[in-house]
């Protein structure tokens, strides 16, 4: 079995001991089929058990192992070591977030923003069960399905230059989820979400650099969601202006 030799430069930071983050280098002989996550796991299991990072599923579903790999936000479980063969690879925590420890970032800012955009179906009045289910056509489903695939890995926030500039910006994943529910034919919460989204730090800080969609490991295309959301928000603003906005 062939091997891939990697020189991992991993950012280390222990807030109880270190003044500031620093890099530590590890030589790892990787099996050819490994992902970067396997190499990091190898360091944790065999070399330095104090290394801290988040991971769980190893199949690009849980969204835990987002980190900066060679300067790009990626899921460590989806980045093959073969692509970095015989190179020095920098592993850092996701950009634009405070570091909690080593590769673990503080996610509180995103969690709070996610809550604010109300990413769940809102009904003014629930239909009685006897009336049956809410039916959707394939066309109805297509309008939002892609945006349901978000796994909250935060790679898009690490990639977004506007979030880096303006930390108040609600940001790609939360806004894409807001759009996902606005675009759902069962939902009636547009006006409620509009209050948050139409604020200056809502959707408007997006300058459509498309970096979120390039970074997204699940091909959600948040940039598209945000442009559609800008149109929805603008239409609602004009409708409210003439007193005809969604209530």
């Amino acid at each position: 079995m062939s091997e891939v030799q990697l020189e991992l430069e991993i950012l280390r930071y222990d807030p109880e001991k270190d003044q500031e983050p620093h890099f530590k280098t590890y030589q790892v002989a990787c099996r050819e089929e490994w992902m970067i996550l396997d190499a990091v796991n190898h360091v944790k299991d065999e070399v330095d058990t104090t290394l801290s990072y988040r991971w769980s599923c190893h199949m690009a579903v849980c969204g835990s192992c987002g980190m900066m790999i060679d300067g790009q936000p990626k899921l460590a479980c989806k980045a093959a070591v073969k692509d970095y063969a015989d190179k020095k690879v920098r592993i850092e925590p996701l950009a634009n977030f405070p570091i909690e420890r080593d590769l673990v970032v503080v996610q509180d800012d995103f969690m709070e923003k996610l809550k604010r955009v109300k990413p769940y179906i809102i009904r003014k009045e629930e239909k009685p069960i006897e009336e049956g289910e809410y039916k959707q056509s394939p066309a109805d489903l297509k309008r939002f399905k892609q945006f349901t695939l978000c796994i909250n890995c935060l790679c898009c926030y690490a990639a977004c230059p506007e979030y880096a500039l303006t930390p108040e910006f609600v940001g790609p994943a939360a806004l894409a989820l807001a759009h996902r529910y606005n675009a759902d034919s069962r939902d009636q919460g547009l006006a409620e979400r509009h209050k948050e989204i139409s604020k200056p730090e809502g959707v408007w800080d997006c300058s459509f650099t498309d970096t979120c969609s390039i970074a997204c490991p699940k091909h959600v295309d948040p940039a598209s969601a945000l442009q559609q959301l800008k149109i929805t928000t603008t239409v609602q603003w004009y409708k409210e202006l003439i007193g005809m906005g969604d209530k």
Partner: peptide
């Protein structure tokens, strides 16, 4: 910038 006008300016920009 005036808060209410973001949508207005963006709509002119987009159009």
């Amino acid at each position: 910038m005036a808060k209410v006008n973001k949508a207005l300016f963006w709509s002119l920009f987009a159009a």
